[in-house]
Design a protein around this nucleic acid. Structure first.
Length: 254
DNA sequence: TTTCTCACA
DNA sequence: TGTGAGAA
């Protein structure tokens, strides 16, 4: 029962590649025995140690952190665990966002609305505006004043901690997609009015924190969609913006 | 098949 | 934090 295993057997057993096993040995994490010809042999103790390494790695610890833990070096665990919890929190947030995107997509299917791959992607993309933030800046610089930019930054910082920007973006994507499907539509119609009410309701959390410079900047930005839509894809089309403004005017007239 | 080393992402 | 290639 000396049960010594060669590297291939250990790789099969643990799912760690033989390459990685040699790498771990090189870092001093494991120290298998050697045959006379130099081949590695893993005994029971090495295997147990390896399983600990795998467990700690799954928990997200780095190899050097694992090295410290396994070698009983005095490791200050508190900051390590705090950092690890922060990483998990971040992952949880990412998962929650992904879930929100999919839930929005599912709700559309439940309403019997068609959802092709392109629409699904645009719903999901609404969540990660960072991707082309730089390009957006070229556009926004043209229409949004420095004061408004600063106001936006302040508002971002002052958002309630439980405000889910991804879900909010997804709600906008959902509403504008439904309006796009319904156009052309008589601005004085009941359906147009319903869309307008939805629009205002969705806008409410923004209006609650927006400064006049911000609303002016955004209005100017969307009044001029034609100027920049070639360079940067707008969240919704000029048609939708014109439609919403028309419904607003119809409301005031009537 | 395994070993080691060097380069690479 | 590993992987891939090449030579032994």
């Amino acid at each position: 029962m000396t049960d010594l295993m060669d590297i291939a057997a250990v790789a099969r057993l643990t799912g760690i590649t033989s390459r990685a096993l040699r790498f771990y040995e090189g870092r001093g994490l494991v120290a298998p025995l050697r045959t006379a010809s130099g081949r590695r042999l893993f005994g029971r103790d090495e295997l147990a140690r390896l399983h600990r390494i795998i467990t700690l790695k799954r928990a997200g610890f780095s190899l050097s952190q694992i090295e410290g833990l396994l070698n009983d070096r005095p490791v200050d665990l508190a900051p390590l665990l705090r950092a690890q919890i922060a990483v998990l929190d971040e992952q949880a947030q990412g998962l929650a966002q992904a879930r929100a995107h999919l839930a929005t997509a599912l709700s559309r299917i439940d309403r019997g609305e068609p959802l092709d791959a392109a629409t699904l992607c645009s719903l999901i993309r609404t969540g990660d505006i960072d991707m082309d933030q730089a390009k957006w800046k070229n556009v926004t610089d043209l229409y949004i004043s420095a004061q408004a930019e600063a106001d936006f930054a302040d508002v971002q910082g002052a958002l309630p901690t439980d405000f889910d920007q991804a879900a909010y973006g997804a709600q906008w994507a959902d509403l504008t997609a439904r309006i796009a499907d319904a156009l052309p539509l008589d601005p004085a119609s009941a359906q147009a009015g319903a869309f307008y009410d939805e629009w205002q309701a969705l806008l409410a959390p923004f209006m609650a924190v927006a400064t006049p410079a911000m609303t002016q900047g955004l209005t100017l930005l969307y009044d001029n969609i034609g100027e920049w839509q070639a360079e940067q894809t707008p969240p919704f089309s000029a048609d939708i913006w014109a439609f919403i403004k028309a419904v607003g005017q119809a409301r005031q007239a009537g």
